[in-house]
Every structure is written in structure tokens, then in C-alpha cells.
Design a protein around this nucleic acid. Structure first.
Lengths: 144, 144
DNA sequence: ATTGCAAATGAGAACGATTATCATTCGTAT
DNA sequence: ATACGAATGATAATCGTTCTCATTTGCAAT
């Protein structure tokens, strides 16, 4: 149980709702969750927590660098626990499955482009959209 | 004046509001406009048009491939007339200025990554965020 | 352990962007 | 010129998210 220190180190008071959200992010199979996903899962687990509190916690975690917010297509932001090095995403347009990748060459090119255009690069978003080949993806042509 | 054919070719009925929106997209200095930008500019020009109609027109233009919708940070989607080859964007976090770029190497890498991960690539979004060096950018350190 | 106070919480109102509803008007094929 | 279905505009509704404010909590100092 080392989560309270995570929050303390991030300059956040260690409260029960925040610990619950953090714990869920750490243990959920799906690494990419909306605020409502988190709210729903916690309620299913019998935890009392308000939706506004979930949003507040996520916003603070983001500011503290514990969590990253992604604005994929489709309205709702998804949140992901920051576990290690930067990566980008590829999303299936049929089933919503999210894979992650990192490409050193692209990162280098991005830095070079920003420099050439006179920008001091802060960050970037890159998301690829396509059809995945998952066996249970509804977009899969049933050809075996 | 060739806009009516543009609409016809896209399978859309040629109506006055749609022509106004299309004309504005073609002639505005800023290539990246929100729906409200368009609504406001048309009203300033004395045109009667409803905000809902602007949204409808833009959504149809997008479906027809005439326009691209970008979900940059900050809530409002921005729309851009499709004028030619694909490109990506770099946005100033201070003044909101948008520059465009295209990088063949990145595009190749994206295709290779999607293939390796078993995705049939449809499209992608890539947006860099940073500080621009514009003389009138409020983020500019006044060092000269 | 108890107290006190600022910070955090929860319920619901408020908000901004976008979409849906529906009576009226327009575009166009006849 | 006519008629019909599609498009429009005003406004209500919706959705995701943030704000408000009365109550509760974490925690530092006793």
C-alpha cells in the first residue's frame, strides 16, 4: 500500500475518494477509462463517491502528472495512469480497442518540425484510427 | 462562382445558407474556424443564418469530404476547408495560432506501425503544441 | 485522544458545445 | 406555376464537464 505517498508526493492531500480512484486506475484491466467508467465501476464495487469528485480527482492527478487525459473522437475524455515513458495510441474505429506505441523516428521528426516552424515544442497528440484484427471485433468480416 | 457545383457534386442541395458558409470558408484569412466564428462572421456581414444551420452545414460538408473537423484542446471543434493534400497541425499554446505541416517520413512510419499492430489504417490526428515566436503572441517574453 | 480549521466532498445547479424538434420556407423536378 | 420533400431557424434538449455551497474530512497543533 504505497498510494498515500503517491498523493503526498504529488502535493495532494490523501483522501479516501482520491485513493479509490487511484487504486481503480492501477488495477483496471482497461488502461483507458472515462470519468463515468470510473464512477460506475466504483459504485458497482459499493463505493460511495460523487461524479464531480471523480472529475476533480482526475483533473488534479493530471496536473500532478500522475494521469494523462486523451481527447479521442467521441466526446468523452479518457484517462490513463502515467506508468512510464511517453507513447501514442491507435484506436479501432469498430470496437474502440486502444493499443499503444512509441516511435523514436516520429518523435525526432516532430522536434525537428517544431524547430523549423519556430515553435518551442511542449507536447503533442498523435492518434491513429483504423480497423483492428481482434477476433471479437464487430467490424471483423467473418471470413474464418 | 463555382460553388453550387461543389455542393451538387457532393450530393448536397445548393441552398443559400450552405453557399454562405462555403464562401466564408473559402475567403476567410484564418483557415481554422469554429462554428461560432462562422456564425458570428456571417452575422457581422449582415447574413441571416441560424447557428444550428451552420453546424448542420459543417457536418454535411465534413461527411462529403469538403471540410475537415479538428478537435484541438479547448472544447470547440475547428473546421477547415479541404484544399488539397493531407497535413497536420502545430498550435501555439499562448495565442492559438495554427500552422500546418506535412512530413513524409512520419506518414510512412504511421503506416508501418499500424500494419505491425494489425490495424488497417483509416486516418490519424497529429497535433503539436508549443510556444510560437510570433511578434504579437502574448506568450512572447518581451526581450526585444 | 481532542480540537479547529482549511481543504475536500457530494448533490445538484449551471455551463458550453452540439444536436434534436417542429412548424415554416425553400429548391427543384415536373 | 405547382407540389413535394428537403432545408431552415428558433428554441428546447442533451451531453460532458465544471461550479456552488452546505456538510464532512484530513491532519496539525494541542
Amino acid at each position: 500500500m504505497h498510494q498515500p505517498e503517491h498523493l503526498k508526493n504529488a502535493g495532494l492531500k490523501s483522501t479516501l475518494p482520491r485513493l479509490k480512484v487511484l487504486e481503480l486506475l492501477e488495477n483496471a484491466q482497461d488502461r483507458h477509462l472515462t470519468a463515468e467508467d470510473i464512477y460506475r465501476k466504483l459504485h458497482e464495487a459499493g463505493e460511495e463517491i460523487g461524479l464531480a469528485t471523480v472529475y476533480r480527482a482526475l483533473t488534479q492527478f493530471e496536473a500532478a502528472g500522475l494521469v494523462t487525459r486523451h481527447n479521442f473522437e467521441g466526446g468523452q475524455a479518457v484517462f490513463e495512469l502515467e506508468r512510464g515513458p511517453h507513447h501514442d495510441h491507435i484506436v479501432c474505429v469498430h470496437c474502440g480497442r486502444v493499443d499503444e506505441f512509441y516511435d523514436k523516428i516520429i518523435e525526432e521528426r516532430q522536434r525537428a518540425i517544431a524547430k523549423k516552424l519556430g515553435f518551442k515544442l511542449h507536447e503533442h497528440t498523435m492518434t491513429l484510427y483504423g480497423e483492428c484484427s481482434g477476433r471479437d471485433c464487430p467490424g471483423r468480416k467473418n471470413k474464418g
